[in-house]
Design a protein around this nucleic acid. Structure first.
Lengths: 335, 335
DNA sequence: TCATTTCCTGCAAACGTTTGCGAATACGTT
DNA sequence: AACGTATTCGCAAACGTTTGCAGGAAATGA
């Protein structure tokens, strides 16, 4: 079956394609009666404008490009879902790319999206992103860009983030108030700003409580379960047993969680644990995991909303804005 | 910055656009020297063909449409990741849509994808899908379609599935061999074929062991944690305490898991549990969950591979094929 | 010398849409 | 009768690419 075109309608009605085009878009030049006839036939033919032809004229599609490190990661899957939700209702579709935490692939993904003439890009950068030329080139081509969670600091783009430092501060502060004294931090990759900020929050809380910072209690690693497991493992092997652990995110917390249980230590009796993100998993482990609620779905939604606003409001002059969404410490069984 | 076009190259070289086009595609009509000059300048200009213009000619993009019930669901996120992986290496991008288990939205999504002239569609249907006209219309438009996991039985399309019935049979059979006698089944929505088949496998295993089927031990519900929780709750309230539970999937198993723990019953001492899918969560709960490994990532990959084969091999005559991937019973602490 | 072949390239149309400009018609005004 | 002014519509170009066909030039053969 073929798609009906504007020309099909024009021929059938004995008028020109341009008249049909104008009639369909309610151009004032066109007589009411003609509009009626055109619209009626368009409905009959189930006519839908060919978005490709439109894109060729505008040099722009109605597709939003999304770049994330990993689709499978709970946080990103949820954010993508939020982006899709907003895009769907605004008449956009989303192309989803994953960088697999790989800089080169992120660059390729961005270039492909530019080539595809996406209307805009929502991105969260990889751990290994060395520079932001690819993002700058998107902006130079007039493609609006919005970061969420993990942003490039040197790109003039809007971002939807949380206050990592303050959230971390609150979590650690809570641990201190709760009586924990020897608090370890399972930190993420040093390259990621969000991890640096969470670490800073940890330091700030200790400082405020006049607890000296012990380098041995800070373990750098990745962002997955295994990383948390390994970090905890090395602590245990070094006989450094903290009385609480603040993890850079939930998977890392869960990994540590498992290693702690394996060691026969009780949670929260021997060691308390706090994660970060409020992934679904945190309510399913035993004991349930104290964590910081990071509104992933809402972050995706908000990022998409800002992007669409940028796409549709031609006043590109709009200065990049930074939206900081609220986090909340969720106290559960692990502390 | 503007994108370089074929005409830019042609003008600069004082030749025609058609010659440039042919030179770039190594057409034998074009003299070697001309090709060299064209390619050199193309590289200088960083020329990349405009996919939109190409699509307008071919009436087809290099985008693969993906429709899933929910992006956030671990199984689907993982499958999408597999699809993206294959698509990326084959030079395709993926548009991801979620139906939210809603039939009407699935129809809209499909129509949007058809409108966008995607090169093909990979889909897993919603729980509420009443008919398959939308999928048939995609096929009628020459858009190849591949289902994974949840397929429409009455559509002549390839599918990538698992042997649900047999997998369920193995799980329940294992429970029986292990000595469990009063085995409940937390079934999924009756509308979903995969759920019917898992139920059938459950029945078959009981029959084979000459255990009579007790309707009271079969609870129908949804596919989320809360559904499992509620099903288990109603069993407990009705004082029907099975000695094992076979759940239609992992989230449901986890929901039941929680309710069982709340009731003060021991897993696996009082009640054994088996899930289905081998979601990541199953290794993180305590005790770890016995489940059936369903290769979600591979299912996505395979579906994408079949689809791309269909797209690129013009012999549309190829009969739809059904690929059944292997599952494996993973025995863990919950049984 | 002329016809034929080979090699290389350009013209123009096509994909479906949008839009500036001009034109035709009808009507009212001097 | 001559002119001005709405009103309504069509022509053609443009977006960037691909491709059938034709045509020019050079080379070959008769």
């Amino acid at each position: 079956m073929r798609h009906a075109t504007i020309t099909d309608i024009a021929k059938k009605l004995g008028i020109s394609a341009s008249t049909v085009s104008r009639a369909l878009s309610d151009h004032p030049d066109i007589k009411e009666e003609t509009k009626k006839r055109v619209k009626k036939l368009a409905k009959e033919f189930n006519y839908k404008p060919n978005p490709i032809a439109q894109s060729l004229k505008n040099n722009r599609t109605t597709i939003i490009g999304v770049i994330v490190p990993e689709i499978q990661h709970d946080f990103f899957a949820s954010a993508i879902s939020g982006i899709e939700e907003v895009a769907y209702h605004a008449g956009y579709t989303i192309i989803v790319c994953q960088s697999n935490e790989n800089f080169e692939r992120e660059v390729v993904n961005t270039n492909v999206l530019i080539q595809q003439r996406v209307a805009g890009i929502v991105a969260s950068i990889s751990q290994t992103t060395k520079n932001s030329d690819h993002f700058k080139s998107a902006i130079a081509r007039g493609i609006p860009l919005v970061f969420f969670d993990r942003a490039c600091e040197d790109v003039a783009a809007s971002k939807v983030i949380i206050d990592d430092s303050n959230s971390a501060f609150n979590a650690v502060n809570y641990l201190i108030k709760k009586g924990y004294k020897k608090i370890a931090h399972l930190a993420g990759p040093k390259a990621l700003e969000i991890c640096k900020r969470r670490l800073a929050g940890y330091n700030n809380a200790l400082n405020k409580a006049h607890i000296s910072i012990d380098k041995d209690l800070i373990c750098y690693g990745g962002l997955h379960e295994t990383d948390g497991y390994n970090s905890m493992d090395s602590l245990i092997k070094k006989k450094i047993i903290p009385d609480a652990v603040f993890a850079v995110n939930d998977p890392v917390a869960i990994g540590a969680f498992q290693r702690i249980k394996e060691a026969g230590l009780k949670i929260p009796g021997d060691i308390g644990i706090v994660g970060f993100s409020n992934n679904k998993i945190t309510t399913l482990v035993d004991p349930t995991l104290t964590t910081i609620d990071q509104p992933s779905f809402e972050m995706g939604k908000k990022a998409a909303e800002i992007l669409i606003e940028l796409i549709e409001n031609e006043k590109k002059s709009a200065k990049p804005k930074t939206v900081t969404l609220e986090t909340k410490l969720i106290i559960r069984g692990s502390t």
